[in-house]
Design a binder for these strands. Structure first.
Lengths: 214, 214
DNA sequence: GATGCTTGGATAGTGCCGTTATCCAAGAAG
DNA sequence: CTTCTTGGATAACGGCACTATCCAAGCATC
């Protein structure tokens, strides 16, 4: 199919598709002559994936490019670890390591990982963006003067471990390696707003149960 | 304190503080004469809250303003429901109701709420942005051709219900109404990146356990 | 084979948003 | 009195996701 049809079938404007091509989110089509390129279903699927990540997942274009690179690398067998390398990309503001709150948060998170027995995650503390995000979030809370029992954080951690098991179970239902990679990414990116929505609905539900309405 | 000191103590540039004042994220200082305004610790605290929501929570300025309005209303006793009104604000792209995937997602989510027994949440389906987000996310998955057992979604829902209970438990540890409102907002906004980070760490951990390293 | 439409590529422009710089007149400080 | 600082108004900036404009090279129809 040509660009116009790709646009029609995906609902994405041709100018936008050209932009994605330029940005490397879509591989170039097969050039049949200097002014015509041919696209196939793989392009369509990739385009839908890109749109989902941007619109539903809210990822910036640059991040999508990185994520896709990992998907493709994984599909080619270059990346063997499904975990770290794959979903360890996105956006974290660098913490200020001189800040006392940040240092305290480091200690707290390290202790948390110990307590939860997350020995594998422990190995990644220096490189994992997730680890850094966690530190930043904990530090922000502390900076605002919030105290919580250590047990609260641990409880959240245990629940998210259950969530992670579901995530990986779902990935395992997909036999092919290429699909696994894509599913892993989607499972990480697309289910985040989904979980967020579920959590808020659950808060509304539970709030209603505890305090009633009106 | 004057603007300059507020800036120094918070680490936020004076120009930015002026911007927040303009945008209504910070209440104006006490005007002591035409060219001098006096700020207090409440301003400092509010400023830190704003920064946390923007930088850690990633909320747009307009949303922060809405959230704060709700916090203040709640503190004044004008909003009685801790749940819906408070954390039901943010950013969702409007779903296209004519889309077949969106309609199917509606049915699926409705059935989910039934299955989970979330009768309170059910009442909010027409107004809650969380409900809409959920529909959008489910529709996006389906559009990409992913199928999952209904049980998976229900399992996620049950886990997020446990999370929501922790959220509300934490809010209840704060006696004053004003603090409750602020805590509720923070519990919703700031813990989201925290949970996301925990989930990803848990994925890395669980991935390591199942498949080993390298 | 001329005419008019479509194609893909290059480039520049648009709109939004968070932030920052520039002015300015009116205090404060020495 | 002079010099610095203050807060307020306004304009400028930089990034990002798109989108509109050109253009020359096909293709389609007469």
């Amino acid at each position: 199919m040509r660009l116009a049809e790709l646009s029609r079938r995906s609902g994405v404007a041709t100018a936008t598709i050209k932009y994605y091509l330029r940005e490397g989110l879509l591989p170039p089509g097969r050039q049949v002559n200097p002014t015509t390129a041919e696209y196939d279903d793989a392009h369509l699927r990739r385009l839908r994936l890109v749109r989902a990540m941007i619109q539903v997942g809210g990822l910036p274009v640059a991040t999508v490019r990185e994520v896709l690179r990992n998907v493709d690398d994984y599909a080619l067998g270059r990346t063997l670890r499904l975990g770290a390398a794959l979903w360890a990309l996105p956006q974290v503001p660098e913490p200020d390591e001189n800040d006392a709150f940040v240092q305290a948060a480091h200690r707290e998170v390290d202790e948390l990982l110990d307590r939860l027995g997350w020995s594998n995650a422990k190995l990644l503390t220096t490189i994992s963006p997730s680890y850094r995000s966690l530190v930043v979030a904990v530090a922000a809370f502390r900076r605002l003067g919030y105290e919580w029992g250590f047990e609260l954080l641990a409880s959240y951690g245990r629940l998210m471990h259950e969530v992670a098991k579901l995530d990986l179970d779902f990935v395992e239902t997909h036999p092919s390696e290429a699909e696994k990679a894509e599913t892993a990414v989607l499972g990480s990116v697309l289910t985040e707003p989904m979980l967020q929505a579920l959590r808020r609905l659950a808060q509304e539900e539970e709030s209603g149960r505890r305090y009633g309405f009106e």
